[in-house]
Write a protein that binds this DNA or RNA. Structure first.
Length: 344
DNA sequence: TATACGTGGGC
DNA sequence: TGCCCAAGTAT
């Protein structure tokens, strides 16, 4: 097995020759742009992120622009990207940077990690990429490369496994050229050491890779134990009056927090009178299935479900023109957008 | 430590 | 088709 120094050189040399260097967030030292990319890329693939990243920066070019925005507009620009707590935390952190750091992003890794939505790995990435700090990262790409290369078995959700992976990450991360090394490891994991069908013939670490030598590519890294996925069944009340449709802003925590949805009731409740069933569908989350039965209702107040006085929790989104439904500056979950589009 | 939290791609 | 999971964090 190589020394840490030899490992670093091979990984960096691979990146110098073959790595991706022109992704939209590369080639900048702007901590805001690096931070935004790292948050959007959490559990999300590069190709999905790119258009969101461009649009977000177009509207919010600086941290202060973001800090001064309404939450509805921030959520609007995150709509469809998923894991919406990322956007809520991003907005909250931008306000913190604007108010407590005078709009200048902190350089200390510990201060970076103290911002909401930034964990140890993301803090390490930002500190290394923006400020050339010697901080290690351990995202999914790095975990996969290290688990295979060193034969670290077990699921990274287990603390002992995570600890072993972090130990290797720290051990191999150079104090000099940390940013280049971190970028190279991410690239190696994303392009070469992929989950299925890795391109071992092009891997700079193939010669000493434990998984390759032992025929354990498909066993490493260890898989998360699977659990049953429950199903929840709800009605969505589609109430259209004067070419306007009633939407409800969800509370800030929980699924689709801060986004606007059709008023929702459990299917264990009786169907409101004079309601008409539209086409039902199943929306699959990673942790449960949501069976949605949209109901066209005349007047929401006549359903007896909702009190009309709760005006602060409700608002109207216009549907009378396609452009208005599309450009309303509010956050809409993907299935809500799709159902709205189908009503036009 | 286990669970909540979105969406779309790959096979 | 259904399942796994992708640049994770918060609780």
């Amino acid at each position: 097995m190589w020394s840490a120094n030899s490992f670093q050189r091979k990984v960096i040399e691979y990146y110098r020759q073959h790595g991706r260097k022109h992704l939209p967030w590369q080639g900048t030292k702007d901590p805001y742009r690096i931070w935004l990319s790292e948050i959007m890329l959490q559990q999300t693939q590069v190709a999905t992120v790119i258009p969101y990243y461009e649009a977000f920066l177009e509207r919010f070019p600086t941290i202060v622009d973001l800090a001064e925005a309404s939450s509805d507009e921030v959520m609007h620009l995150w709509s469809g990207l998923g894991y919406y707590s990322r956007a809520r935390n991003l907005h909250k952190a931008a306000k913190t940077v604007a108010e407590e750091y005078a709009g200048t992003f902190p350089q200390d890794p510990e201060e970076i990690e103290a911002l909401p939505g930034i964990g140890l790995s993301t803090a390490g990435a930002i500190a290394a990429f923006a400020f050339d700090k010697p901080t290690a990262i351990l995202d999914g790409n790095v975990k996969r490369v290290l688990a295979r290369c060193y034969g670290i078995e077990g699921w990274a959700g287990k603390s002992a496994v995570l600890k072993a992976l972090w130990a290797k990450a720290e051990e191999n991360t150079p104090v000099k050229d940390t940013a280049q090394y971190n970028q190279a490891m991410m690239d190696l994991g994303a392009v070469i050491c992929t989950r299925t069908k890795p391109k071992c013939d092009k891997c700079p670490l193939a010669k000493e890779c434990f998984a390759l030598k032992q025929g354990m590519i498909s066993e490493l890294p260890g898989k998360k134990p699977k659990k049953a996925r429950p199903k929840r069944s709800v009605y969505w009340l589609v109430c259209i009056e004067d070419n306007q449709v009633l939407l409800h802003k969800r509370p800030p925590s929980g699924i689709w927090g801060g986004l606007w949805c059709f008023p929702e009731i459990e299917q264990s409740e009786p169907i409101p009178e004079h309601s008409q069933k539209l086409s039902s569908f199943v929306h699959k989350f990673s942790h449960y299935d949501l069976e949605v039965q949209p109901l066209l209702v005349k007047k929401l107040s006549k359903t007896g479900i909702m009190e009309p006085n709760e005006t602060e929790r409700f608002a109207l989104a216009f549907l009378n023109k396609k452009t208005q439904a599309k450009t309303a500056q509010i956050g809409l979950p993907t299935p809500v957008s799709k159902l709205l589009a189908s009503l036009q």
